[in-house]
Amino acid sequence: MNGNIPPLTRRGLFGVGAGVAAAVGGVACGTAEENTRPARQLTGIRLRWWGNNSWEIRISAPGGDRTVLIDPWLTRFRTGTYTPAGADPTTPLSVDTALIDHYVDSGELRADHILVTHGHYDHITDVPYLAQRTGATVIGTESHLNLLIALGAPQDQLSVASGGEYIDCGSHRIRVLRSLHSQLGPRARIPFPGTRPAAPPPRPRTIADLVEGGTLAYQIESPGGSVLNLGGSNYIESELTTLRPDVLLLPVGGSNVHDYVPRLLHALGNPPHILPTHWDDFDLPLSRPAKDTGGLAPLRKAVTAASPSSAFVVVDHLQTYPA
């Protein structure tokens, strides 16, 4: 264990304690009834959860489906995050190329775009190899892309973003939003903080080498529905107030964020479909059912209190929504 970097514990990493439960107590910025809006049926758009914050969004389009991946991480090597000692910052990075090849070669996994919310190991470690295998365009901040280049990503497939971009992809649009990473522990710290501007760093070797590098959120919009992913249990409220996503991919946690759930749902007009994300024990493989790290119940309670008309839907590893 690196003595200069405090361990990341299960509770510290996700902040699933009293903070989220306390958010249930009410919101001063309006009532759920004021913001309730009817849910429209999702058509021509399907989500699949690959664990952690890894999502596949497949959009039906003339000439063939288009696919967007968010933070794809299939390898899920052990870090000790859910042990009493917490994650070991010296854990070496690894990529299970055989596993990725299995899904890509079978046609089960493909990508036109890969969207990176931030630079931590559980969000970008597999991205360079997936970009090579799929030919996808990868979108992220300057720091994210420098880390990806250092990991061997094809540079001609990388597209830098800083938030504010609105990309027309024909069958769908990608809206890039400025966002914030989760704030953890009593001092509201970000794990593995920092940026990597200007030039790629030396090749990252351990999980501590993959720094946050800024956080982005993404909304994917199609005629059949829109999906918003925050990437972390935090957000910039002013970036969201004009959005009305049909589906919100809502991370567990947010214990250090004032009124994390009610303020967010109010800003978004109470999304009709809410799917929790980043709630499973990612030290365990995708082949196992997802193991709740403790955040689902308080998140469900907070959503029900803030927006009783919203459907709170939990999907398991590799399951799709709508089913």
Rank of each mutant, 00 (worst) to 15 (best):
G25I: 06
H172A: 13
V20R: 09
I5C: 15
T43I: 13
V138T: 09
A22W: 09
V116D: 04
N53W: 00
P276T: 00
H258I: 01
I174E: 12
L69P: 00
S233C: 07
P223Q: 06
A323C: 15
P271Y: 05
Q155H: 09
D105S: 15
L296A: 08
I114Y: 10
L180D: 03
D156V: 02
N2V: 10
L248C: 02
L145E: 00
R244T: 04
W50T: 02
Q157T: 10
D259E: 03
P271F: 03
D316G: 15
S60E: 15
E239N: 06
A23I: 01
T206I: 05
S307A: 14
D209H: 04
E239L: 03
A302Y: 01
L296E: 05
T293N: 11
R187Y: 14
P289T: 10
P201D: 01
L240S: 00
V257R: 02
T81S: 06
H123T: 09
L284R: 14
G185N: 03
P7Q: 07
G44S: 05
I70D: 02
A28Q: 12
L47I: 07
D101Y: 08
P92W: 05
Y129D: 07
N35A: 15
T206K: 07
P272I: 04
R263I: 02
T304I: 12
T125Q: 10
D316H: 13
I57R: 00
A61I: 08
L8H: 14
G152Q: 10
S54V: 05
V116T: 10
S60W: 05
D209C: 04
W50F: 10
Y121D: 11
L318C: 11
H113V: 12
T137V: 11
D112L: 14
V303R: 01
L147D: 06
Y129L: 09
K291G: 08
N2D: 15
V227S: 00
R244Q: 06
I207C: 04
H123S: 11
A208M: 05
Q183P: 04
V104S: 13
H172Y: 15
R288Y: 11
S307C: 13
D101M: 09
G225V: 01
G294H: 01
R133S: 14
I5W: 06
R40D: 11
V24Y: 04
P186D: 09
Y260L: 05
E239T: 01
P186M: 13
R173T: 15
L318D: 10
L228N: 03
H317Q: 13
R133I: 12
L115S: 10
G254P: 02
Q183N: 07
T9R: 11
D105Q: 15
L148H: 04
P197W: 02
W50H: 11
G19L: 00
L130I: 06
D168T: 11
S310I: 00
I174R: 12
G15C: 05
F77T: 03
P191L: 12
R46V: 14
Y103E: 11
L42Y: 04
I167H: 14
D101G: 11
H258A: 02
H181Q: 13
D209I: 05
Y321R: 14
D88I: 03
R133G: 14
P154Y: 08
P202S: 08
